[in-house]
Design a protein around this nucleic acid. Structure first.
Lengths: 171, 171
DNA sequence: TATTGTTATACTCTATAACTATA
DNA sequence: TATAGTTATAGAGTATAACAATA
C-alpha cells in the first residue's frame, strides 16, 4: 500500500515528502489515484460491484421492460403466487409507498393480477398472469446469463463462495 | 387458521406442467416468502449487502457529517493530495456535475481547499486542510470499526476473500 | 479539436406523514 | 389498538446537454 506519501509524477515546489504542519501548501500533481484504503471496506466494494452488475442488468433487461426492483418483485411473485405487498416489502426491504406504483404498473401491463386474500380482508394476493410467467421465464434466464458473464473472472466455486459470504452480511 | 397452504415455503420449481391453464384462479396464501432464486444472483446479493452496510454507515457517520460519497471523496483527497475533480470522477465512478456541489460543500466546511494545478491551468488540485485530515483520521477509523461489526459473522480470512472476490467483479 | 470544470435541469429512487378499511 | 394498502410529497441520488476557459 502506497497510502501515505503521495507519488507525484510532476513535482513543482516540493522539498521533502514529509509534511511539515506549518509549511506553505505544496502544489502537487497526482499521477495515479490511490484508492487502497477504500478497497479495504466491504461497503465500498459491495456497492461498486453491485453497480457494475446493475449497469449490465439495465441494458439486458431493457427489452423486458424490467428494472432491478421490477425484476425482483416479479420474481418473488412468480415463485410465491398469492404473496402480499407487505410480504414483498419485508422480503425485499422495500417501503410500502414505493411499491404501490410499481404493482399498478405491472398489473396495467398484464404481468400480474391482484385477487382477494383468502383470510385477510385487508390484503390482496399478487399472482403472475400467464404472460407474466412467460416473461419471467425469459428474464430469469437472461439474468442468470448476464451474472455469469459479469463474474467471468471467478470460478464456479468462487462465485458460490461470494454468494455465501454476501448473504452472511445481510441475511 | 384454515387456509389452504398451497405455497410451501421451501419448494421446488413446479409450476409449468402442473398448472391447468383454464382453471379458476386459486386463492392461495403464502406463509413464508421464498427468495431462493434471487439469492443465486450476485447483483441482488451485492446490492442487499451494500445497503445493509450503508445503513449502519449513515448512522455512525452522521456525527462527521459525511455521507458515503462524501466519505469516499474525502478519503481519496486525503490519500492523494492534489487530486483533480476529473481524477476523482474516474476513480469513484462519479459524474462531474454531481461532484461540483459536493466539492463546494466540503470546501465551505473547511475540510478541503482548492489550489491551482501545477501544470494544467484548467484543473484545480484538491487538498485536505488540517481540519479535514483530522476529521478523516477519525472517520476512517470509525468506518473500519463498523465494517468489522457488519462482518462479524465472517472470519478475517473470509472477509479478505470477500473483498478480493468483489474486486474481481468491478476492477 | 479535446478536455476541465461548471450550470441548469430532469429524472429516478428513496423516505416520511397521514389517511381508509379491515383485523 | 394494530396492520395492509394507499396517497401525497419531499428529499437524495443520478443523468444529459451545453457553455467558458484552457490544452
Amino acid at each position: 500500500m502506497s497510502a501515505r506519501t503521495a507519488a507525484p509524477s510532476v513535482k513543482r515546489s516540493i522539498e521533502s515528502s514529509k509534511k511539515p504542519l506549518g509549511s506553505v501548501p505544496t502544489l502537487t500533481a497526482v499521477d495515479q489515484v490511490d484508492t487502497s484504503f477504500l478497497e479495504t471496506l466491504l461497503g465500498y466494494n459491495a456497492r461498486r460491484a453491485a453497480l457494475t452488475i446493475i449497469e449490465v442488468f439495465l441494458e439486458r433487461m431493457a427489452k423486458f421492460g424490467l428494472r432491478p426492483v421490477d425484476f425482483s418483485v416479479m420474481s418473488v411473485i412468480e415463485h410465491n403466487p398469492g404473496v402480499t405487498s407487505r410480504q414483498l416489502c419485508a422480503a425485499l426491504n422495500l417501503l410500502p409507498p414505493n411499491l404501490v406504483g410499481l404493482i399498478q404498473s405491472l398489473e396495467a401491463r398484464g404481468l400480474i393480477h391482484r385477487r382477494p386474500h383468502p383470510t385477510d380482508g385487508r390484503a390482496m394476493g399478487l399472482h403472475p398472469t400467464p404472460e407474466g410467467s412467460a416473461l419471467m421465464q425469459q428474464a430469469e434466464q437472461a439474468a442468470t446469463d448476464l451474472e455469469i458473464e459479469c463474474s467471468s473472472r471467478l470460478t464456479a466455486a468462487q462465485r458460490k463462495t461470494l454468494l455465501d459470504l454476501l448473504q452472511k452480511i445481510y441475511l
